[in-house]
Design a protein around this nucleic acid. Structure first.
Lengths: 203, 203
DNA sequence: GATAAAACCGACCGGTCAGTCGGTCGGTAT
DNA sequence: ATACCGACCGACTGACCGGTCGGTTTTATC
């Protein structure tokens, strides 16, 4: 029966959940395996029964999360509508995620220097597949069909992602009351810019 | 004589320089005081003769750097010309900095969780004074004189800074050959957006 | 060249933390 | 009942690292 979790799966799940919460709140180095274990209500021995190392635990948590995000954003990418519509949908999907899920996306940039070699690559690739590449696909099509001005799709996708990250910051919370307002800021700024038209304004 | 450094100043300078290079390359926790000392060609005892703690060393380095940047960007902020001209000048000044100086600006965001209390506040305030507040001042005036559409100046300034950070990344290096191209991307995208005009394109 | 202060050294300490390991316990198949 | 197994425990270890301190060298000053 798929709805019944084994004891092992339940414990692993608690450990992953504890790791998520703690790693979002503090740097990788400042979160101890003891803290994670206590939060998950197991001992350190129990934690190491399920995960071979602190790095692998972090990686498992991030990789799982990024794969779920990739699947979510893929729906927006492959949905019908204009480039602007699809970018809006993807951004809305992201903004409507619980806070912890949104914050997790920033962790990759913050903690990337902690890893090296294969583990670093895994993390970077999973992140790129989850978010920037989805945006890039949409933008690429937007350029091809003339909805967007010609340019490097990758740089544009990173620019777009950077703008999204701005409106999920702390200060933004007290400026924008709704997801809709945040969404408007990002999409309008990206497509239309912040400037007023140079030739004959409305005033 | 101002051109002659005392031994003490020379050594402090070497330590600061070593710290800069190492902290840019690795997380705060992954850089040991021993590494810094060896790179600066002193011993740990020598390092602690000049700085009271690892945190204070990091703080000294960042605060010095951010104050120099503030003075640099202030020139652009108070220079004559349109909002667009002054933002261009500020961005150009930033992009023409040596790589290490540019990367340092990103460290504040990366390492901010390492600190708490007064030290954290010092760091955040110095960063904001150095870059986002300069941009905000320019944008605020741009909104007042109609060059920019109405909006929250602070969110707009953070958006602008976020776009600048995109074009100093690794991938951007191989897309853009020149500072001028990077500058164009940021300023054009911010003012005009990436979209094509909806009413009667040029084709 | 005597003297004092500043600069510098490096062995050492105390604490922390990732990871280990021998062992316990509850379930389950035989 | 017995044998077995995966889950879990928690005391322990070994390495590392920030910071200290008594002592030595260099520099500045008269």
């Amino acid at each position: 029966m798929t709805q019944t979790l084994t004891k092992s799966e339940a414990t692993s799940g608690r450990i992953i959940a504890a790791a998520r919460t703690l790693f979002v709140a503090r740097n990788y180095a400042d979160v101890t395996t003891d803290m994670i274990a206590r939060t998950a209500e197991v001992t350190k021995g129990g934690l190491y029964h399920h995960f071979p190392s602190k790095e692998r635990l972090y990686l498992s948590m991030m990789l799982d999360d990024l794969e779920r995000k990739r699947l979510l954003f893929e729906k927006a990418t492959t949905s019908p509508g204009s480039c602007r519509d699809r970018l809006s949908r993807l951004t809305r999907d992201f903004l409507e995620l619980p806070r912890e899920d949104r914050e997790l996306t920033r962790l990759v940039r913050r903690d990337i220097n902690t890893f090296s070699g294969e583990e670093r690559d895994l993390l970077v690739r999973a992140y790129q597949r989850a978010l920037p590449e989805q945006v890039e696909t949409i933008i690429d099509e937007g350029i091809k069909n003339g909805e967007l001005a010609p340019g490097d799709a990758r740089i544009l996708s990173w620019s777009f992602v950077a703008l999204v990250e701005v409106v999920i910051g702390e200060y933004a919370d007290h400026v924008y009351g709704s997801t809709q307002a945040r969404l408007g800021h990002v999409v309008d700024l990206f497509f239309d810019g912040a400037g007023t038209p140079p030739t004959g304004g409305t005033l």
